Amino acid sequence: MTQNHNDQNPQDLSSETSPEIEAQLEEAAEIQDEIDEEAHSPEQHIAHLEAENERLRSDYLRALADAQNIKRLADKRVEDNSKYAVANFAKEVIPVADNLARALTAATADARAASDVVNTLAIGVEMTEKELQTALSKYNIKRIDALNQPFDPNHHQAMTEIENTSVPTGTVIQVFQDGYVLHDRLLRPAMVVVSRGGPKREPKPEGDAPAEDGVDRSV
Protein backbone atom coordinates (compact mmCIF):
# COMPACT_ATOMS: atom_id res chain seq x y z
CA MET A 1 0.00 0.00 0.00
CA THR A 2 1.22 3.42 -0.90
CA GLN A 3 1.87 5.63 2.15
CA ASN A 4 0.16 9.08 2.23
CA HIS A 5 2.75 11.80 1.76
CA ASN A 6 0.72 14.11 4.03
CA ASP A 7 1.23 11.82 6.95
CA GLN A 8 4.23 13.25 8.74
CA ASN A 9 5.79 12.42 12.00
CA PRO A 10 4.47 14.77 14.73
CA GLN A 11 7.98 15.16 16.00
CA ASP A 12 9.12 16.32 12.57
CA LEU A 13 6.17 18.84 12.41
CA SER A 14 7.02 20.20 15.82
CA SER A 15 10.65 20.64 14.89
CA GLU A 16 9.70 22.50 11.71
CA THR A 17 7.23 24.96 13.35
CA SER A 18 8.82 25.54 16.76
CA PRO A 19 11.27 28.26 15.64
CA GLU A 20 8.47 30.18 13.92
CA ILE A 21 6.14 29.92 16.93
CA GLU A 22 8.90 30.92 19.29
CA ALA A 23 9.65 33.97 17.17
CA GLN A 24 5.99 34.99 17.22
CA LEU A 25 5.80 34.48 20.98
CA GLU A 26 8.90 36.59 21.50
CA GLU A 27 7.49 39.34 19.31
CA ALA A 28 4.19 39.27 21.21
CA ALA A 29 6.06 39.41 24.52
CA GLU A 30 8.04 42.45 23.34
CA ILE A 31 4.85 44.20 22.25
CA GLN A 32 3.24 43.48 25.62
CA ASP A 33 6.32 44.79 27.42
CA GLU A 34 6.11 48.01 25.41
CA ILE A 35 2.43 48.36 26.24
CA ASP A 36 3.08 47.75 29.93
CA GLU A 37 5.97 50.20 29.90
CA GLU A 38 3.84 52.92 28.29
CA ALA A 39 0.94 52.26 30.67
CA HIS A 40 3.19 52.60 33.69
CA SER A 41 5.48 55.35 32.52
CA PRO A 42 6.50 57.87 35.23
CA GLU A 43 4.70 60.70 33.45
CA GLN A 44 1.41 58.84 33.32
CA HIS A 45 1.81 57.64 36.88
CA ILE A 46 2.40 61.21 38.09
CA ALA A 47 -0.56 62.49 36.08
CA HIS A 48 -2.75 59.79 37.58
CA LEU A 49 -1.65 60.67 41.11
CA GLU A 50 -2.23 64.38 40.50
CA ALA A 51 -5.73 63.73 39.18
CA GLU A 52 -6.52 61.52 42.16
CA ASN A 53 -5.14 64.13 44.54
CA GLU A 54 -7.29 66.85 42.94
CA ARG A 55 -10.37 64.65 43.21
CA LEU A 56 -9.73 63.96 46.89
CA ARG A 57 -9.08 67.65 47.55
CA SER A 58 -12.33 68.60 45.82
CA ASP A 59 -14.24 66.00 47.85
CA TYR A 60 -12.64 67.30 51.06
CA LEU A 61 -13.51 70.94 50.32
CA ARG A 62 -17.09 69.99 49.46
CA ALA A 63 -17.46 67.98 52.66
CA LEU A 64 -15.91 70.83 54.68
CA ALA A 65 -18.33 73.36 53.17
CA ASP A 66 -21.28 71.09 53.92
CA ALA A 67 -20.12 70.65 57.52
CA GLN A 68 -19.72 74.42 57.96
CA ASN A 69 -23.20 75.07 56.56
CA ILE A 70 -24.72 72.48 58.87
CA LYS A 71 -22.91 74.01 61.86
CA ARG A 72 -24.02 77.51 60.87
CA LEU A 73 -27.64 76.42 60.57
CA ALA A 74 -27.46 74.56 63.88
CA ASP A 75 -25.94 77.58 65.64
CA LYS A 76 -28.62 79.86 64.16
CA ARG A 77 -31.35 77.49 65.30
CA VAL A 78 -29.94 77.35 68.83
CA GLU A 79 -29.64 81.15 68.90
CA ASP A 80 -33.21 81.63 67.66
CA ASN A 81 -34.58 79.08 70.11
CA SER A 82 -32.90 80.94 72.96
CA LYS A 83 -33.66 84.42 71.65
CA TYR A 84 -37.33 83.90 70.82
CA ALA A 85 -38.25 81.20 73.33
CA VAL A 86 -40.67 83.55 75.12
CA ALA A 87 -42.58 84.52 71.96
CA ASN A 88 -45.66 82.42 72.71
CA PHE A 89 -45.66 83.48 76.36
CA ALA A 90 -45.36 87.13 75.32
CA LYS A 91 -48.39 86.83 73.05
CA GLU A 92 -50.40 85.58 76.02
CA VAL A 93 -49.22 88.39 78.33
CA ILE A 94 -49.71 91.28 75.89
CA PRO A 95 -53.54 91.27 76.26
CA VAL A 96 -53.05 91.80 80.00
CA ALA A 97 -51.11 94.96 79.21
CA ASP A 98 -53.94 95.99 76.87
CA ASN A 99 -56.51 95.65 79.64
CA LEU A 100 -54.41 97.69 82.05
CA ALA A 101 -54.05 100.42 79.43
CA ARG A 102 -57.82 100.45 78.84
CA ALA A 103 -58.44 100.75 82.58
CA LEU A 104 -56.16 103.78 82.75
CA THR A 105 -57.90 105.34 79.76
CA ALA A 106 -61.28 104.86 81.46
CA ALA A 107 -60.04 106.57 84.61
CA THR A 108 -60.17 110.10 83.23
CA ALA A 109 -58.67 113.07 85.01
CA ASP A 110 -62.14 114.31 85.94
CA ALA A 111 -63.14 110.93 87.38
CA ARG A 112 -59.95 110.72 89.42
CA ALA A 113 -60.40 114.25 90.72
CA ALA A 114 -63.99 113.54 91.70
CA SER A 115 -63.30 110.30 93.57
CA ASP A 116 -60.44 109.30 95.82
CA VAL A 117 -61.35 105.65 95.29
CA VAL A 118 -61.05 105.96 91.52
CA ASN A 119 -57.81 107.86 91.89
CA THR A 120 -56.36 105.22 94.23
CA LEU A 121 -57.38 102.42 91.88
CA ALA A 122 -55.89 104.29 88.94
CA ILE A 123 -52.61 104.73 90.79
CA GLY A 124 -52.53 101.00 91.52
CA VAL A 125 -53.22 100.18 87.87
CA GLU A 126 -50.48 102.59 86.77
CA MET A 127 -47.96 100.90 89.05
CA THR A 128 -48.99 97.45 87.86
CA GLU A 129 -48.83 98.48 84.22
CA LYS A 130 -45.40 100.03 84.73
CA GLU A 131 -44.05 96.90 86.45
CA LEU A 132 -45.45 94.71 83.69
CA GLN A 133 -43.76 96.81 81.00
CA THR A 134 -40.50 96.65 82.95
CA ALA A 135 -40.74 92.86 83.17
CA LEU A 136 -41.46 92.61 79.44
CA SER A 137 -38.50 94.86 78.65
CA LYS A 138 -36.16 92.52 80.52
CA TYR A 139 -36.97 89.91 77.88
CA ASN A 140 -36.67 92.46 75.05
CA ILE A 141 -40.44 92.62 74.57
CA LYS A 142 -41.08 96.27 73.78
CA ARG A 143 -44.12 98.35 72.99
CA ILE A 144 -44.08 100.09 69.61
CA ASP A 145 -44.10 103.87 69.91
CA ALA A 146 -46.61 104.68 67.16
CA LEU A 147 -48.45 107.89 68.10
CA ASN A 148 -47.39 110.93 66.03
CA GLN A 149 -44.94 108.78 64.09
CA PRO A 150 -44.94 108.31 60.31
CA PHE A 151 -47.01 105.31 59.29
CA ASP A 152 -44.74 102.27 58.99
CA PRO A 153 -46.31 99.20 57.34
CA ASN A 154 -43.67 97.04 59.04
CA HIS A 155 -44.95 98.02 62.50
CA HIS A 156 -48.41 99.51 62.01
CA GLN A 157 -51.75 98.28 60.75
CA ALA A 158 -53.95 101.12 59.47
CA MET A 159 -57.56 100.74 60.55
CA THR A 160 -58.78 103.90 58.85
CA GLU A 161 -57.70 107.32 57.53
CA ILE A 162 -58.98 110.64 58.82
CA GLU A 163 -58.71 114.06 57.21
CA ASN A 164 -56.25 116.15 59.20
CA THR A 165 -54.44 119.11 57.67
CA SER A 166 -52.47 120.00 60.81
CA VAL A 167 -49.98 117.14 60.45
CA PRO A 168 -48.16 115.65 57.47
CA THR A 169 -50.06 113.06 55.48
CA GLY A 170 -49.41 109.54 56.72
CA THR A 171 -48.98 110.45 60.40
CA VAL A 172 -50.34 108.14 63.09
CA ILE A 173 -52.86 110.32 64.94
CA GLN A 174 -54.53 107.66 67.08
CA VAL A 175 -53.62 104.21 68.41
CA PHE A 176 -56.44 101.72 68.88
CA GLN A 177 -54.16 98.98 70.16
CA ASP A 178 -50.46 98.99 70.98
CA GLY A 179 -48.08 96.84 68.97
CA TYR A 180 -45.13 94.88 70.34
CA VAL A 181 -41.81 93.53 69.10
CA LEU A 182 -39.56 90.80 70.48
CA HIS A 183 -35.98 91.76 69.67
CA ASP A 184 -36.27 92.42 65.93
CA ARG A 185 -39.38 90.30 65.37
CA LEU A 186 -42.88 91.68 65.22
CA LEU A 187 -45.20 90.10 67.76
CA ARG A 188 -48.20 92.25 66.92
CA PRO A 189 -48.60 95.39 64.79
CA ALA A 190 -50.03 98.54 66.31
CA MET A 191 -53.58 99.21 65.11
CA VAL A 192 -53.66 102.87 64.19
CA VAL A 193 -55.53 105.73 62.54
CA VAL A 194 -53.57 107.56 59.85
CA SER A 195 -53.94 111.16 58.72
CA ARG A 196 -54.56 112.35 55.18
CA GLY A 197 -54.94 115.69 53.45
CA GLY A 198 -52.06 117.37 55.27
CA PRO A 199 -48.77 118.68 53.92
CA LYS A 200 -46.33 116.31 52.32
CA ARG A 201 -43.85 114.85 54.77
CA GLU A 202 -40.26 115.94 54.31
CA PRO A 203 -38.13 112.95 53.25
CA LYS A 204 -35.57 111.76 55.77
CA PRO A 205 -31.87 111.90 54.96
CA GLU A 206 -30.78 108.82 53.06
CA GLY A 207 -28.69 107.54 55.96
CA ASP A 208 -31.69 107.67 58.30
CA ALA A 209 -34.15 106.00 55.95
CA PRO A 210 -35.57 102.79 57.44
CA ALA A 211 -34.99 99.51 55.69
CA GLU A 212 -37.73 98.49 53.31
CA ASP A 213 -38.48 95.44 55.38
CA GLY A 214 -36.48 95.49 58.57
CA VAL A 215 -38.92 93.50 60.68
CA ASP A 216 -38.89 89.76 60.99
CA ARG A 217 -42.51 88.55 61.00
CA SER A 218 -41.75 84.86 61.51
CA VAL A 219 -42.67 84.65 65.21
Score class of each variant (00 low, 15 high):
56 L>R: 15
45 H>V: 13
47 A>L: 09
50 E>C: 06
37 E>G: 01
50 E>K: 07
62 R>D: 07
36 D>Q: 02
41 S>L: 09
40 H>T: 08
34 E>V: 00
44 Q>W: 03
35 I>N: 10
38 E>T: 03
42 P>S: 01
60 Y>R: 11
54 E>W: 04
39 A>N: 09
36 D>L: 05
56 L>N: 08
58 S>P: 04
57 R>G: 01
46 I>P: 02
45 H>L: 08
32 Q>N: 09
35 I>W: 12
54 E>Q: 06
49 L>Q: 01
52 E>T: 14
46 I>C: 06
49 L>H: 00
46 I>D: 00
43 E>K: 03
46 I>F: 03
48 H>F: 13
59 D>W: 14
61 L>N: 11
58 S>T: 12
60 Y>G: 08
43 E>P: 01
35 I>D: 12
31 I>Y: 12
53 N>H: 04
42 P>F: 01
41 S>T: 08
34 E>L: 12
57 R>Y: 06
54 E>V: 08
62 R>Q: 15
36 D>I: 03
38 E>K: 03
46 I>T: 07
58 S>Q: 13
37 E>H: 01
62 R>H: 06
51 A>V: 08
48 H>D: 13
52 E>L: 14
56 L>H: 10
40 H>R: 05
36 D>Y: 12
52 E>F: 10
46 I>W: 09
63 A>M: 10
44 Q>S: 03
53 N>Y: 05
42 P>D: 00
62 R>E: 15
38 E>S: 05
51 A>R: 11
40 H>V: 04
31 I>A: 12
46 I>G: 01
47 A>T: 02
52 E>N: 13
57 R>L: 10
49 L>S: 00
41 S>G: 09
39 A>P: 06
31 I>P: 12
44 Q>L: 08
62 R>P: 09
35 I>M: 14
55 R>G: 11
36 D>W: 12
63 A>I: 15
48 H>K: 15
44 Q>K: 01
61 L>I: 14
40 H>Q: 07
53 N>M: 03
35 I>Y: 15
48 H>L: 13
50 E>W: 04
42 P>H: 02
43 E>I: 00
43 E>M: 00
31 I>G: 11
33 D>Q: 10
52 E>D: 15
33 D>V: 12
41 S>V: 03
49 L>A: 00
60 Y>T: 02
39 A>Y: 06
33 D>G: 09
63 A>D: 08
51 A>E: 10
50 E>S: 05
38 E>N: 02
33 D>S: 09
50 E>G: 10
61 L>T: 15
43 E>D: 01
39 A>T: 10
46 I>Y: 02
60 Y>H: 03
33 D>K: 11
62 R>C: 13
40 H>G: 07
50 E>Q: 05
61 L>W: 14
56 L>I: 14
43 E>A: 04
63 A>W: 11
47 A>E: 12
63 A>G: 02
47 A>I: 08
43 E>N: 06
51 A>L: 05
58 S>E: 14
31 I>M: 14
63 A>C: 02
61 L>A: 15
63 A>K: 11
43 E>R: 04
35 I>R: 15
54 E>H: 06
58 S>C: 07
31 I>C: 06
32 Q>W: 04
38 E>V: 05
49 L>C: 02
41 S>N: 06
55 R>L: 15
50 E>V: 07
31 I>W: 07
47 A>P: 02
42 P>Q: 03
47 A>C: 03
34 E>S: 12
36 D>E: 11
35 I>P: 14
43 E>T: 01
57 R>W: 06
33 D>P: 04
61 L>Y: 15
60 Y>S: 00
41 S>P: 05
